[in-house]
Design a protein around this nucleic acid. Structure first.
Length: 906
RNA sequence: GGGAGAUUAGCUCAGUUGGUUCAGAGCACCUGCCUUACAAGCAGGGGGUCACUGGUUCGAGUCCAGUAUUUCCCACCA
């Protein structure tokens, strides 16, 4: 059957994925082999595949497929994260559209809706990963809120509480007025925003004197309970003991002196609103100030505000500015840029708020996490991310982790209240037993206990992921085999949210779970390596996001270029750890990203190239006759050359893999397959048109191609599997995905160099043809000046014939005399004469030679200077000096030859 | 304020131990090819003072110091 000249991934990829699944190749169970384990950074269950996922998961798939080919027991655990805020927000929105209010239906009904929704849409992103070719062990798919994983969360909560590391307290926290929950510090993103600085004057009580403060948040004036100035500020020393009148509310508040105030800023006077600012709160505590909370949870003004009750805080900001203006209290409104904290999930402006929350004290954890990386038990790639990590954990920057959330979608905090008692137990029954003891009341029932309404932060479940996906908190059987995982592949943006915390969890529990002996042998770390990928950005360097519309649609890209093409495109732009500028162009009208990419196109073209190499090989007619001695010599030389280069390639790939230089590895494979294999090897052994190929050469070509498919498979799994099967009829189970990854042998550098000479001569002949407008396939005569080196070429069986074949020569012979009407060129240090059947462009040749001469002369000058420098000769390694000497000799010879040619032309 | 990265061809980026195996790749561009696996292709070609200034060294894209531009992280910000 005739094969199409186009490779069609759409017809190939699904077929092989199904086949792999049917053969169960991705499933792992513990056995005697060495394990190679990766746990996926679980995408949000609400999510769809975006460019970041594509990059991230392509990399994981490469590593896991490579390990599988190496005969390791490769286990890639997939799953999703319940992402409490994001998911709850989505479900709330969905219900609202149906006219249902969360608060009306209650906790249980809400959770039912949420689970329904998760069951319906939660698997989408995992199916999308399959399209990409991800070879996850799907039988191991986990979900952070499934029963077993939730149980682990509760278990560690109780454990930490019992260890005294979890506490409950009334603190200033970051409140998200949209999601109606508190956030951890890490979930607040500060960005510069344009706003106004309002200069407002407060009357000093009992005088006609005014004092001016500056604020960006005039709506909080209603909650002011003091004015603060610096104790050394001479402008205000006379106000000692005085009071100021807060405008509008006409409340009289003390003027206090506190070193926190920056004398340089504004007027040097600060209004203090302890309920709505972290620093004000601290000042308030120092001075025993009253706390007036003027906001409701949803960001509207509360009864306590006295004015604008029920109005939104931002509407109030505008209104109060007007009203103060009318009162004559506004001195000035100045345009001002300041940092505003927004919720990572909802983008709502975060409101500092005093609330009762659960905290995990970070003291010991931070040090552990720091030591793990500084001792290299966990290794970061690229290394420099250590600095960021260190910076965050080291400088006492780490505040205690606020782990409670005022949400329903998540693991409910296992704290039970009765009378004044707080009981933290894994189950209500245990709590009840404890309650009876504490209260002395034996008649208590579960109904008498009140369970905490809050759930834990999502990251409080995902920090256990590398342990809990193996049911590590329940039975340690599998954990013993798979822990520690080999590598974590994730974006650096969740270094603090997730990576650092997984390290903490690993060190906190692995010894308890796995025992001291295990830890001694394998360590506590949840992963040995962390490979941080860059962020995927658009061509204006903005992070790709849905809201900006600057991201191409991942699945459309796969539709257009095939998964292999997209994998190639992602990876070839992704050097380790650097952010990636993805090249998708924009539609000038809609400003939306088009689903196009030059790099993915290159990947697709690469597939096509390989497809056509397959067509070439399979399209040849086979003969049982052996090749002519000349052809046999060429083919054997070509084969030997390929195999030697192949081993050098394996070495290079090994090196690149070890340092996670995956895009380098891919580029090496690309240029090897396209350049060395297709452009050179196949052309070397290809029979003349219409001629059959002998068995031996045919088998050699297939052998090489097959080997290359194994090497490339981790990067481009589908096309390699297709070609693997296209090359030969295979027994069941003989699939590329489970073929054997080779180990490198030494290669013969001399042989490689020799063939490189042939390549150089061929290129020079082609160049000469091009320059002189000669047909590519017109047979020409080539002579080479007899010399030791040129004579050596003729000793090598096949080499001269190879040159003749590749350069379309009628003959190649040694000569002592210059042939008539010939163009000459140099290859290495030998001079070649190409006889052409038309007039020589003397001018052009002269010019070319002149340029070559000047270059060589310049080079010689540099070399001579270098070699006459005694300090160079004495200090540089012998090898380097010898090298330079050789270069000098070679170039002097070159100059001689060029001058000879020049004279001849003249 | 503390810290990290980046700056190399028109564009996007490699360049690992300092040495013409180092100045590279892809795209874009130019020339010639509808050559018999592949026009999603083939054969060639042009294009860079390696941000700047010093220093170390026999020798610097590479190491050190400083400057500029830029991205990011942390902290502070009335």
């Amino acid at each position: 059957m005739e094969l199409s000249t186009r490779y069609t991934p759409q017809e190939v990829e699904g077929k092989w994925y199904d086949h792999w699944m049917k053969e169960n190749y991705f499933h792992s169970v513990p056995d005697e082999r060495e394990a190679f384990t990766i746990v996926i950074p679980p995408p949000n269950v609400t999510g769809v595949l975006h460019m970041g996922h594509m990059l991230n998961n392509t990399i994981q798939d490469i590593l896991i497929r490579k390990a599988r080919l190496e005969g390791k027991n490769a286990c890639w655990v997939p799953g999703t994260d319940h992402a409490s805020i994001a998911t709850e927000a989505k479900v709330v929105k969905l219900l609202r559209e149906q006219g249902i209010k969360k608060s009306d239906i209650g906790r249980d009904a809400f959770l039912e809706h949420a689970f329904d929704w998760k069951d319906k849409y939660g698997g989408i992103i995992l199916d999308q990963l399959k399209r990409l070719g991800a070879s996850c062990d799907w039988e191991r798919t986990r979900f952070t809120m499934e029963e077993k994983l939730s149980k682990a969360v509760i278990q560690v909560f109780v454990d930490l509480y019992n260890k005294g590391k979890i506490y409950r307290g009334l603190r200033m926290t970051n409140w998200d007025p949209e999601a109606l929950t508190v956030l951890s510090n890490e979930e607040v993103i500060y960005k510069d925003e344009q706003s106004n600085l309002y200069h407002v004057r407060y009357q000093i009580e009992g005088t006609e004197e005014y004092l001016t403060i500056a604020t960006t948040r005039p709506e909080t004036i209603l909650g002011d309970t003091a004015i603060a100035v610096h104790p050394d500020d001479e402008r205000y020393t006379h106000l000692q003991g005085k009071k100021a009148i807060v405008p509008m509310v006409n409340r009289s508040v003390p003027i206090i002196f506190d070193k926190y105030v920056d004398m340089e800023f504004g007027t040097g006077a600060l209004k203090v609103t302890p309920a709505h600012d972290m620093n004000d709160n601290e000042i308030g505590e120092r001075h025993g100030l009253e706390v007036i909370d003027v906001f409701n949870a949803n960001g509207t003004m509360s009864e306590a505000a006295g004015f604008y009750v029920g109005m939104d805080r931002f509407a109030v900001r505008k209104q109060i500015a007007k009203d103060l203006e009318e009162l004559g209290s506004i001195v000035e409104i100045e345009a001002y840029k300041n940092k505003v904290g927004r919720s990572e999930r909802t983008d709502a402006v975060v409101e500092p708020r005093l609330t009762e929350q659960w905290f995990l004290s970070m003291g010991g954890f931070a040090k552990t996490a720091l030591d793990a990386v500084s001792s290299d038990e966990v290794t970061f790639y690229p290394e420099h991310f250590w600095n960021m990590y260190n910076n965050w954990l080291n400088e006492d920057n780490v505040k205690d982790w606020c782990i409670s959330r005022q949400l329903w979608w998540g693991q409910r905090i296992p704290a039970y209240y009765i009378e004044d008692h707080v009981i933290v137990k894994e189950t209500a029954e245990e709590a009840l037993a404890e309650a009876k003891q504490l209260t002395g009341r034996t008649d208590l029932t579960l109904d008498d206990l009140t369970q905490d309404e809050d759930v834990v932060d999502t990251w409080f479940s995902s920090w256990l992921w590398p342990i809990s996906v193996f049911d590590g908190f329940e039975t340690q059987e599998e954990l013993k085999y798979y822990y520690p995982t080999n590598v974590l592949v994730t974006g650096w943006d969740i270094m603090f949210f997730w990576v650092a915390r997984m390290v903490m969890a690993g060190y906190e529990w692995s010894e308890e779970l796995l025992g001291t002996d295990f830890i001694k042998e394998k360590g506590r770390q949840p992963f040995n390596d962390v490979f941080f990928t860059g962020m995927v950005r658009d061509n204006k360097r903005r992070k790709m996001s849905k809201s900006l519309g600057n991201s191409p649609d991942a699945l459309s890209l796969i539709d257009t270029y095939g998964a292999d093409g997209v994998r190639f495109g992602m990876l070839s732009s992704a050097a380790a750890g650097n952010d990636i500028v993805f090249d998708a162009p924009f539609d000038p009208e809609t400003k939306q990203a088009l689903n196009e990419s030059k790099l993915c196109e290159q990947g697709r073209n690469f597939c096509n190239k390989m497809w056509n190499a397959l067509r070439l090989i399979k399209g040849l007619e086979l003969t049982d006759k052996v090749a002519s001695p000349a052809d046999a010599a060429i083919n054997q030389l070509a084969y030997d050359w390929m195999m030697n280069k192949y081993h050098a390639l394996i070495k290079e790939l090994d090196k690149n893999y070890n340092e996670y230089r995956l895009s380098d590895a891919l580029m090496s494979l690309y240029s090897f397959i396209w350049g060395d294999f297709c452009s050179w090897y196949l052309e070397m052994v290809k029979p003349e048109y219409g001629q059959p190929i002998d068995q031996k050469t045919y088998q050699q070509a297939i052998e090489i191609y097959e080997k290359l498919m194994t090497l490339l498979h981790p990067f481009m799994p589908f096309v390699t599997e297709e070609i693997w099967h296209g090359l030969k009829d295979r027994a069941s189970g003989d699939d590329c995905v489970v073929s054997t990854y080779p180990s490198a042998s030494d290669s013969d550098g001399e042989l490689i160099k020799t063939v490189e000479i042939a390549k150089e001569v061929v290129s020079k002949v082609r160049e000469a043809r091009n320059k002189n407008g000669l047909k590519a396939k017109e047979l020409l005569k080539l002579y080479v000046e007899a010399s030791d080196t040129s004579k050596a070429l003729f000793q090598n069986s096949g080499l001269v014939d190879m040159i003749k074949k590749m350069a379309f020569l009628e003959s190649l012979e040694l000569t002592d005399t210059e042939p008539e009407n010939a163009i000459d060129f140099l290859a290495r240090t030998d001079k070649y004469f190409l006889v052409i059947n038309k007039a020589i462009d003397v001018e052009g040749e002269l010019k070319k030679l002149q340029e070559e001469l000047e270059y060589a002369q310049g080079f010689v000058k540099i070399l001579e200077k270098k070699l006459s420098n005694e300090r160079f000769v004495n200090n540089a390694p012998e090898q380097v000096v010898a090298n330079e000497r050789k270069k000098l000799a070679d170039n002097l010879e070159k100059i001689r030859l060029i001058e000879e040619s020049l004279n001849r032309l003249k």
